[in-house]
Design a protein around this nucleic acid. Sequence first.
DNA 1: ACTGGCTCCTGAGGGC
DNA 2: TGCCCTCAGGAGCCAG
Length: 271
Amino acid sequence: MPELPEVETTRRGIAPAVRGRRIAGLDLHEARLRWPVDPSLPRRLAGQRIRAVERRAKYLLLRLDRGTLIIHFGMSGSLRVLPAGTPRRPHDHIDLRLDNGRVLRFNDPRRFGSWHYTTAPPEQHPLLRALAPEPFAPEFDGAYLYRISRRRRVAVKQLLMNSRLVTGIGNIYANEALFRARVLPWRPAQRLKLAECARLVRGIRAVLNLAIRSGGTTLRDYVGADGRPGYFRQKLYVYERDGRPCRVCGTPIRKRSQGQRSSYYCPTCQH
DNA sequence: ACTGGCTCCTGAGGGC
DNA sequence: TGCCCTCAGGAGCCAG
């Protein structure tokens, strides 16, 4: 799923229902996620209050009294707020029961998601330690992108999807940001001009902002905290639009395989 | 130090 | 209808 806009939409959706609540219990129905979920989680979390709901890159962070829950949605994960006692559906793996009669329920058909708990500062956790700056942080600018792309031969699209270099971007938003910056996805990173890097930063921020405002992009599994899909899909310029006319110039959008993933581009607008 | 390929898993959709 | 193949919002890990 879940690139930055979907995680952020979930964060905003669940925050009002969970912030300040006490954890009544955790039901672990399926621990075989990307990494096995710690079976002592129920004991360790019970009774703690949820102090804040934050996001780092594509990770959702629940700040508790004595530690932090670090949740990742993988390719197909989602988190919903439901009334206690709502019958479980297929792939509902974890329930975080709250003291207000609600349950925070994690569903993930492909089980690429993860749940970790740490009592150390979360930024020191191995999964978060090496992450690049947030796309909206001041230090993430054209000069930054230009600097990290020197000497790298990888295609610019791969660079955008490398979380040690750029965070929050997956296949959908990489394609969309490249279209907005008018840069072809397979351009070697080291050949980018400073002006193109600046356009990419603007394109990344614009597409992420708009997607957040639309509640994210739903292709298959993703739903927000209220169970409703995101509707940014209708505003996509290139992703899964091959054969259809470019919204800017009318040229048919093309699709090409790049590193085990699909790239979509306008052969006229992008160079 | 980079880079590309493989891997985990389930489900949907297309071709025959 | 059913079977087989390909592909899908991620990203850690490994060999070269």
